[in-house]
Design a protein around this nucleic acid. Structure first.
Lengths: 337, 337
DNA sequence: CGAAACGATGGTAACGATACAGGACGTCGC
DNA sequence: GCGACGTCCTGTATCGTTACCATCGTTTCG
């Protein structure tokens, strides 16, 4: 392996000068720089990142812990985060936590092994009781719900407002019996509860009573669960004229179930989701949704993390709650005559 | 920061003993181990990964370079690779190359900076002329086409056979005018050409003449392109009774276009894709596809890479070509009476 | 009973880069 | 003419860990 020493020797300068050239420090004569660069090219020298990391105490790498990277929502988020991180010369390591509490904590532990300069953690499994386990002295940005009282930076979706607007969209379409599909996590702080709260809000302000029978539950956010719940609803004998799925992936599973069960959407039942994943535009029918502006969330999270990494003191814990807009598509529109 | 020295001092042993404990070396008395572990826990000591990397020359991290992580195919692949890599205690850094040649080369360069122990490279942008740029002395597994003559390990999909089988599925369904949607990359070695070859094969062995008008092209593999091409086909006035899309993502865009243009699938036109992404089961209509067994490919790629990393000489460059099966769903089945 | 083998521990020297401090030289201002 | 400052370059001392080898008991076995 060719080291910085070898380059220095071959170029007739000190290792420090080579280092200065590599790191684009000023105060290196143009001719020297050229020459060193030539030698670097000739010897095919590559910096040893491990050595640099050890010396500088930085890795230029951040961790991104998400439940599963093959869910479209997280895929799109990860893509955006990687893109924004690369603007700061940061690499991104993806940890799949499978929404398990242990794995989320593992990701944190890794960060603190100095493997990452910081961590963006999409919490799903952690609960309020885990607040103590979170490091205060380490750059972490939580993406998702504000579960903790602790002083951590936080980028959240407009869950309550978005869900209220989604429900309102259905109400505005004349629907009165609006089912909601959510997960059965009892936590009061999770996404599910927040979106449920928005749904209740919207019902209440329109004077529509909430029917507990119309709140149906899934175990996980997947197409398969959405399909199951769609089938259950279709065959339940319940009367309903709309469904709000708290994530798009559930909605797509449910749409498929309704197609199979011959429940016309939007003819008989209107459907709306949340997340505005790309697929929404291309399903049959296309899916109305709440667009939380992934890209901006990703950008915000990265910037927040970068500012922590570069040493901003944690005195001012910051919360960012994104904006949203409702995107109306076929699934919640009046059917063509 | 608490170092191994601090632990050693506090435990009354040498740093080496602590190191042995951490790395689970044998020949440490159980009581000593216990005690050291206690001290580690008490001091909240964490290994400094950078120092370890420097000393051992390994990072326990591999790179995965894919065009875009938010495409379902790559998302599913990445999820599988991360899962399999973690069985070897390897972390995965994802680089998005955007299918550009430069970025693919960059990913390689990073690897050689010893940032990664090895690289799984999903080539799309590189061409046969770039063979020289590929390192022979570095663990790399190519995922995708065998573009290079060079001695690199390689995990490929059964492109030709899979495409032949997909086309045959349509022929078996009685179709005679079968369109193909592929990209307009002229390279003879790329996925597009291979799948096209399989398509031609199938036509020929059934004595169906190939009509160049039925070969339509896209710029990229995306829902949007699939939609465009679907619209173009629907409005082209061409007569066709089936479409083979060389990736599922194109097929889903196309299905949506056909829904919009009121081209009945499978009633009027049958459609089949390639990749068998999860979404295929849940679209309306559900999409027939060729399943290349992602998970096995991911497993193979990781294992191949691991064997190179652990020093197997590169004398026996290995090619692995996966198996496949055709999954028949609504889009290529006789419509319900 | 002595030699060999083994189990448990520790000393030393890197791994390859950069932080820091400082030296040599030239230029500028007054 | 002389100090002050800026430019360009270099020597030294680590960063925290593990590889390698040595050491010292203790056990085993012929």
């Amino acid at each position: 392996m060719v080291t910085i020493q070898d380059v220095a020797k071959a170029a007739g300068v000190s290792p420090m000068t080579v280092s200065h050239v590599i790191n684009e420090h000023p105060h290196v004569k143009a001719s020297t720089r050229e020459h060193v660069l030539e030698v670097i090219a000739k010897l095919d020298y590559r910096v040893n990142v491990a050595a640099r990391n050890l010396r500088t105490g930085r890795t230029n790498t951040i961790g991104l812990a998400v439940p599963e990277i093959d869910r479209p929502y997280y895929g799109e988020l990860a893509a955006a985060i990687i893109r924004h991180a690369s603007a700061f010369n940061l690499h991104v390591v993806i940890e799949q936590t499978g929404a398990s509490r242990e794995n989320e904590l593992d990701a944190l532990a890794l960060s603190r092994k100095l493997m990452y300069d910081g961590l963006i953690l999409s919490t799903v499994g952690l609960g309020p009781n885990d607040a103590d386990l979170l490091p205060v002295d380490y750059p972490v940005v939580l993406l998702g719900e504000r579960i903790f009282a602790g002083p951590l930076d936080h980028v959240a979706m407009p869950n309550v407002d978005g869900a209220r607007a989604a429900t309102q969209e259905l109400i505005d379409g004349g629907c009165k019996r609006i089912a909601i599909v959510r997960d059965n996590n009892a936590s009061q702080t999770g996404m599910s509860s927040l979106r449920f709260a928005g749904y209740l809000d919207a019902l209440e302000s329109s004077g529509i009573p909430f029917d507990p029978e119309l709140s149906v539950h899934v175990d996980e956010y997947s197409l398969a669960s959405g399909f199951d719940v769609g089938m259950r609803l279709a065959n339940s004998g319940l009367s309903f004229d709309a469904v709000f799925c708290i994530t798009d992936i559930l909605a797509h599973g449910l749409l498929r179930a309704f197609a199979t069960a011959q429940v016309a959407v939007p003819g008989k039942v209107r459907v709306i989701g949340f997340d505005n994943i790309e697929q929404d535009q291309y399903s049959v029918p296309s899916l109305s949704s709440v667009d939380p502006n992934h890209d901006l969330m990703a950008k915000t999270a990265v910037e927040l993390l970068v500012s922590r990494i570069s040493g901003k003191p944690r005195t001012d814990q910051r919360d960012y709650v994104g904006s949203f807009r409702v995107v109306t598509r076929e699934s919640s529109s009046a059917p063509a005559p």
